[in-house]
Each structure stands twice: as C-alpha cells, then as structure tokens.
C-alpha cells in the first residue's frame, strides 16, 4: 500500500468512527485545500455522499474566489451547507484592526453560536500536525470543555484507533482525520484524486497564497507555481513555513496558543 493510500485509509476509518459514535456531527469547511480534502474523504467514506452538514464560518472578509468555490462545491457535491456568521459583531463594526479580538468574535464566537444552535456533539476539522507547533500536540478525538477550552496537559490516551467518545462535561469533541498528513501529502493527494481547489493557490504575477483565510490577514508568498505539479515541486524544495503569510501566527509567539485556548480551530 503506498503512502497516500495509507493516509487515506486511516482518515476514512476515523471519519467513519466519528459518524458512528455521534448523532449530531458536522464538518468544518473553510474551502481551503485541507478541509476540501477532508470533505472529499467524507465523500469517499460514505460512498459519494456527505451524510451530515458542513459548516462554513463566514467572517465576511474572505476572498470572493473562496465564496465562489464554496458555492460551486456545494452544488457539485450536494452538500448540506450551514453558514455561521456573527452578524451582531459585524453590525457593531468588528474588523481586522485587532486581530485577536476579530478572530475570536468572527470565528470562535460564530462557531460557538453555531454549535449551540444545532447542538453538535462533534465537529470534523481538517487540521494537520505539521502546520503549527501547537497542532502537533493534538489527538484525533480531542475534547473541548464547556468553556470551549482545550486541556492539552491532560488529554485522554489514544491507542490503536480506539477513540474516546463524549464525556459528560464536554460540550463537543473535535475530530481531526487529517492530523497525520503533511502539506506535501495534501497536494500530492489533490493531484492523484484530481481535486479542484480555490484558484488563489496558484501563482499569478509571481505571487500565490499558500494558506487561505481573510483577505485582510493573508499575504501571498513569492512563487511561480501555477499548477499542482509546480506547487508540489515548490514545497519539496522550499523551506518557507506554510503559514508564513498568516497574520494570526505572527502577532507574538503565543497568539495561536491564546486563540486556541479560547476555542479557535
């Protein structure tokens, strides 16, 4: 079994376990390459259908290309889309001037409200261990308490594909089927499966986005990679961090950690 097939099977097993164990489950979909791969893996796990909703957290500051791609996929894959948006904060003028506050209001709070509204017990997320130091510590099934907090010092043991189901005091479990994938694996898989991605990943005028989010907080990196093949070649030789263009990783050394402690993805 080749490396990508091994990664794929492990992910499908985890996706099926989570669907078996939780009645109220949804996938979080940012339309980025990772969560789009996650949705595709769900399609494969359930033989061509995603039997639960996909949640798109809309900060309203995303690139137009992301909204277009979202609607295109929803139509093509017949997805049950839920848009989570913190209209109250937006009406009060929340914007990216203060990044920590903005992310917390427009992403974390929007997600909290959405979970409360639909009563989700579990959420599938497309995070990977190699993305960010703190994500390297995640489990496949990761409980969040009532305050949405992640007690990473006292995580449940996880052995041999036995994942801990919901415990009473938790609000929900985050499930991470792509945890063991690396950035280059995602691109190789996109290539193998012939998946489409948001065009912003491909170079135009010598720049491309390597990681997508809000227009205000994402910077492109210098690149000539205009095809999936060229992106793979670039990652194999590059030593620039994937999230180098993401502002929330940069503010200070602990921004990502603070965000996550507050319930960020």
């Amino acid at each position: 079994m080749d490396h990508l097939t091994e990664l794929e099977n492990k992910s499908i097993y985890i996706i099926r376990e989570s669907y078996n164990q939780f009645d109220k489950i949804a996938a979080l979909w940012s339309v980025g390459k990772d969560s789009t791969t996650l949705i595709w893996l769900c399609m494969k796990a359930f033989f061509g259908q995603v039997p639960f909703p996909v949640v798109y957290i809309d900060t309203s500051f995303h690139f137009q290309e992301m909204y277009d791609f979202r609607d295109y996929c929803v139509d093509r894959w017949d997805l049950d889309l839920i848009v989570a948006r913190n209209d109250q904060a937006l009406a009060a003028g929340m914007g990216p001037e203060n990044k920590l506050e903005c992310c917390t209001a427009l992403k974390t709070q929007a997600l909290k409200d959405c979970i409360a509204q639909y009563g989700f017990e579990a959420l599938l997320l497309g995070i990977r261990r190699d993305e960010h130091g703190i994500r390297a510590k995640e489990r496949y099934f990761s409980p969040r308490d009532q305050k949405f907090q992640w007690d990473y010092e006292n995580q449940p043991p996880e052995l041999w594909d036995q994942y801990s189901a919901r415990a009473d005091e938790e609000t929900h479990i985050r499930v991470h089927p792509l945890l063991h994938w690396r950035e280059v694996d995602i691109w190789r898989y996109i290539q193998r499966e012939g998946l489409e991605v948001v065009p912003l990943y491909f170079a135009a005028d010598g720049m491309r986005y390597r990681s997508l989010g809000c227009q205000s907080c994402c910077a492109p990196v210098a690149s000539e990679a205009a095809t999936v093949d060229e992106i793979i070649a670039e990652i194999e030789t590059s030593s620039i961090a994937e999230r180098a263009g993401r502002a929330q990783d940069k503010e200070d050394a602990y921004t990502m950690q603070k965000l996550r402690a507050l319930g960020y993805m």
């Binding site: 449940p156 043991p157 996880e158 052995l159 041999w160 036995q162 801990s164 189901a165 919901r166 415990a167 009473d168």
Partner: peptide, 13 residues
C-alpha cells in the same frame, strides 16, 4: 490489543 474504559475514560491499554 485493546483498551479498557471506566465510564468514558480509557484507563488501561
């Protein structure tokens, strides 16, 4: 190979 749970918690491998 197996795990043992007490309530919801894995308590042994």
């Amino acid at each position: 190979r197996f795990v043992l749970l007490r309530g919801h918690d894995v308590v042994a491998g």
